[in-house]
Each structure stands twice: as C-alpha cells, then as structure tokens.
Design a protein around this nucleic acid. Structure first.
Length: 557
RNA sequence: GCGCCCAUAGCUCAACUGGAUAGAGUGUUGGACUACGAAUCCAAAGGUUGCAGGUUCGAAUCCUGCUGGGCGCGCCA
C-alpha cells in the first residue's frame, strides 16, 4: 500500500517543514534533532493521525506543550493531504486527512485488487513455523487445538505479509515415550487375551490404548512372540495409528502441514552426531560425572544441561538442538516455534544452543500458548492428562464445528488463559461472535443478490464514483477497509494473530450500524453504485480476513 | 527458595507497545422491522486498571516492594 504510507510520510513532511520554519524564525535552535511519533489516535474525534512532537520540544524550549503545538501549527503548510490540523488535549497535534484522498485510495485498491492491501514487508524471506508437534502417544487435546489454530493463522498472516512460509510438525518418534507407548499397548493387549497384568501408573491411561490393543486382535495382526519384539512392534504400530489420527484431526480442523519431520531422521542422517561434534569442537560441551554437558551458562542465565546421559542415551535437548540446526541448514532465516507455556523454562537453553552454533538468537521466535479451560453449562470441565480424562480436539470439533472452534481459539492473546465456552460456541445466535462476522458477509451477499435482480451487477462497479460517499460512517468504513493493511502488518510484526479477530469484529460492527441506518439500494443510481463498491470492498476484506482465520465466509446462513 | 507469565466494568476480554475522557461483548434496563436478512441496530447504567511507592509533561503499560493465581526449576519429554 504505497499510497497509504504516502499519507503518513507527507504528514511527517508537514511536521518537518514546520520545524524548519521555526528554526528559520529563530524560535527553535538549529541543532534540534527530534523524532516525533506519528500515530493513529484511538479516539475517532482526534483526527486521522496525531503527533506528540510538542511534548518532546517543550522541555527544549522551556514552554508548555500546548504553546509549542500552537506555534508549530502556525508554521504548518497543509499540502494536498490534509484539510485541517488542530491542537488538542494538552498539546497533541491532530491531522485530518481529506476525504477525497481516502476515497481515491479505496478506488485504487479496487482497481488493483485486495492484494494491494497486503504489506510486502517479508520480501520473500524464508520462515519455518513449527507447531503442534504433539508426541504420537495419544490424541490431540484442546490445548493442541489452540496451538494449531494460532500456528496455522500466523502462517497465513506471514505469507500475506510477503514471507515464504513453511509449516512443519516435528514428530518425536525416537524417545522414551514411544517405548512407554509400546509397553502400554502390549499390556492392554495381554489383558484382552485374558492374562493378569499389573498396569503401572506411569503408562498411558487413556481408553484409546485399549482401542489399539483391540484393533490388533480384531484385525488378526501378527505379533512377534518374544516380549521385547512384541513391545517394539506395538510401539511402531501404536505410534503410526495415533499419528494418522492426529493428521486426520488436523485436516478436519483445517490445518495442513507442509512437512512432517521425524526425530528419528536426525539419528539416521547423522545430524545428531554432527551437532555434538560441532558443539565439542567449539568448546561448549564438556564431560562431567560420566555425562556430556552443554554450557548453557556461557550464553544465558540458565544452568548447564545434559546432552548425553551417563548411560549413553541422548537427551531430548540434544535432538532439539540438532533439529534447530537443521532448520537453519535448510536456509530458513526465521524460526518460529509454538509451545505450550509450560515449556517456557526451556527457552533459554535453546537460545543458548543456537548461539553456540553461531546463529543469532533473535532469529528464533518462541510463541507460548497458555492453557485452555473448558466451560460447559457454566461450569469448568476438569482436564487431567494423566487420568486420561482430557477433552480431545476431536470432541470439541464434533461439538461446536470448525468455524467456531478456530474463531474462539483466536479471540485471545495466545499467552493469556483462554476460557472456552462450549455452549456459547455452539449457539447459532447473536451472542456468538463468529456469527456476527459471518452474518455481515452473508448480508452483503444478500444485498448484491437483490442488486442483481434490479439489474445492477458487479460488472458495473468500475463506473462507481466513491466521491459520492459523504456520510461520516461511510468515510470511516473506507478508513476501516484501508486499515486492514496496518492490521496485517502489526500481526506479522508482533506475531499476534488474535488482532485479526478483533479487527474483524470491529469492522463488521461498523458495517451493521451503517446497514441499519442507511439504505444501499435506492433511486439514485450513481449513489447506489458507489455504496455497492464500498460494500464490495468491505466484503473482500471480511472474506480475506475470515480466510486468514480459516473460517468460512458463507453467502447465506 | 529462585525464575517466567497473569491480575482492567457483575462475567469474558481489548487498549496499535509511554499518550488525550481506559473501550467492546455479555448480563441488567428501556427502545427500533408495511423497503436491501432483527443471527441486526440505538440508548442508559456499570471503573481508585489487585495494593503501596517511584520514574515524567503524561503510566493499565516501565522500575521497586507487597497480596493473590498459573507455570517452570531432572542424566524426563
């Protein structure tokens, strides 16, 4: 959106020129360097942009900010961009951009297509976003669902912002938990065959393990006779079945990964050994008590961590370092990891490892996902993974549907607790925010259907003249549409996908108000056409926004 | 004991990263369909931003100390 930035730039120019003018008049010291903030005010009555420059200059001039602001405004030469500027509050300078400029901006976006609103900040730089990565030892629960939604939507945002994004799922198929899984299935299997077994506490407790055992019996799958081999077989079998289930759940949730990356592959391709060699080589690994340690402490405020245990086994940390090294080797410039917030203590050691490998720790962005608590009938639903009583993503999906589930997961900042109200998400009524947004889309489509019956099609929109839109709410809808650009940019910069949700709710609220007040299809053909173009662009933004969220944009509801 | 995160309207949450009179939704109360979809809109009421200090023109936001909640601190993953 070059012209959007153009507006901000020319306001900066107005300010700068005013400063120069003041310097020439001897009011301002010639050597004054100032970097004022130009922002969009929260309050609508405060103009389109405002600056705090007067507050910054006040101490220099030993005058109060309001005086300084007044003086600056007197030196301002309003160019073609603004038609009004004033001093407000304790010394803010507010700029009012000409309506015509916004109108022309939108006309321009219409001509170029909605893509004109996508920021090109990414410049094709390669980003790897790794998320979910749940161990294939049980079905995805609701917390994984939240991570999946956040990761998927963030990926959508980043690609809209011009990044080259790859979505990856890391499968921990080499660790001890896979052996535990095999043992769990094995014992359940023995149980089903009528043997007395003692099922230990630290094995997987969920009923899905019994289902796996039953599947082996029902399908007459041959099991190796030696216990050791049987357990290994069960591990492989269970892991694969569960992983297939996870992939299916994700697909039904609308999340598709570009790649599934196996931990075992790190061993097979020698990447683990290479990584260890590299760390030793650089002198960041040392032996103590029969184990190999990594020197976390020389990079971060954290304790040294074990890479190879005294029994010769590598730790999870080791493969994780290797994995991240490999991400860089695959020429990704930015690595985004999405973790459950209970792993936050893990960040320093991984950042330390990345530095040890000679990479910039800032290239790794870790996004933490806080826990989700479920609310049903107004009461919290208990969740304990150990007892196997957790709510699965599948259950939520079956209960509330994909659209509501995804939307609800993105209604909160990811590092804040999310209270998921199942009853609310299930409601097909006005209380449900998903419908509020979707309804706006359906309403606009309905208007276009009616317009079509009156012989006005979208093929006539190029003739529309947005200058005819003079109502205040129409201008502010135009600004809202244009603002989509800044919202995507903000999301991409801060890695906060939830902002899209809030933006849509806000935008759509303005639309509903407008709709109730103003009739779109009227006798004035020219005005009708202008309003239809406005709604057409609005619809494009809503549709694109919902698309980013992975939520459908229905034409009828 | 040490470290990280959170605390905002009755409830669930925002606040563009230090800006102006802290905003939405929901709930409560009252109103709007003989024209484009009432799954909508309009209005009222609701606050010492957990507490106490500090930094400055200006703090929900930053610094310190409390209080209350979550999570970490393994040769687990």
């Amino acid at each position: 959106m070059r012209r959007n930035q153009m507006i901000k730039r020319s306001i900066a120019a107005i300010i700068k020129d005013a400063c120069e003018g003041c310097k020439k008049d001897g009011i301002l010291p010639v050597d004054t360097e100032i970097n004022p903030i130009i922002e969009i005010p929260r309050e609508k009555g405060h103009g389109d942009y405002s600056t705090n420059i007067a507050f910054l200059l006040a101490p220099v001039l030993k005058k109060n900010p309001k005086e300084v602001a007044g003086m600056l405004v007197q030196h301002m030469d309003l160019n073609a961009v603004c038609d009004k500027v004033d001093v407000a509050g304790k010394g803010f300078i507010n700029f009012y951009v000409k309506d015509a400029l916004w109108q022309e901006l939108l006309q321009d976006v219409y001509a170029k297509g909605i893509g004109a609103l996508f920021p090109g900040m990414g410049k094709g730089s390669k980003v790897l976003i790794e998320f979910v990565s749940a161990n294939p030892t049980g079905p995805l629960h609701i917390g994984h669902g939240r991570g999946a939604a956040v990761g998927d939507v963030l990926a959508n945002i980043l690609s809209k912002a011009g990044y080259d994004v790859t979505k990856e799922y890391y499968i921990n198929d080499a660790g001890r938990q896979i052996k535990t899984l095999g043992r769990s299935t094995f014992l359940r299997w023995q149980e089903l065959k009528g043997l007395q077994v003692s099922y230990e506490q630290d094995l997987y407790q969920g009923d899905y393990i019994k289902d796996l055992a039953r599947e082996i019996i029902d399908k007459n799958i041959e099991v190796p006779s030696a216990e050791e081999d049987a357990i290994a077989f069960m591990a492989k079998f269970s892991g694969e079945v569960i992983m297939n289930g996870i992939v299916k759940d994700l697909e039904d949730f609308g999340v598709h990964f570009d790649s599934y990356y196996k931990e075992s592959g790190l061993y097979e391709r020698g990447i683990i050994d290479d990584t260890l060699a590299l760390l030793k080589d650089k002198g960041y690994a040392y032996e103590k008590d029969g184990a190999l340690w990594f020197q976390t402490s020389s990079f971060e405020k954290d304790e040294d961590r074990v890479l190879i245990k005294s029994d010769g086994e590598k730790t999870y940390f080791t493969s994780d370092i290797a994995y991240h090294l490999d991400k860089f080797e695959r020429s990704y410039e930015t690595l985004v990891d999405i973790w459950g917030s209970d792993h936050h203590g893990y960040i320093p050691r991984l950042k330390a490892a990345i530095q040890a490998l000679g990479k910039d720790k800032e290239d790794l962005k870790v996004i933490l996902i806080q826990f989700v608590s479920l609310l049903k009938d107004g009461k919290p639903v208990g969740m304990s993974t150990r007892a196997g009583a957790f709510t699965t993503l599948r259950e939520v999906l079956d209960e509330v549907g994909r659209d509501a589930a995804r939307f609800f997961f993105l209604m909160r900042k990811s590092d804040a607790h999310l209270e998921f109200d199942l009853d609310l998400a299930k409601k097909t009524s006005n209380e449900n925010p998903v419908y509020y947004v979707q309804y706006a889309h359906a309403r606009i489509m309905s208007i276009f259907r009616n317009a079509g019956e009156e012989g006005i099609g979208i093929d006539q929109l190029p003739k529309a003249d947005l200058h005819l839109l003079t109502q205040e709410d129409e201008i502010s809808l135009i600004k809202g549409i244009i603002h989509f650009h800044d919202v995507i940019e903000g999301c991409a910069r801060s890695f906060e996908p939830h902002r899209i949700t809030f933006y849509l709710l806000d935008l759509v609220g303005d639309f509903h108000s407008y709709y109730n007040k103003t009739r779109v299809l009227g006798d004035d053909r020219e005005l009708t056409l202008a309003r239809l173009l406005l709604l057409h662009m609005l619809r494009e933004v809503i549709r694109t926004g919902l698309n980013i969220l992975g939520v459908s944009a229905p034409e009828r509801m």
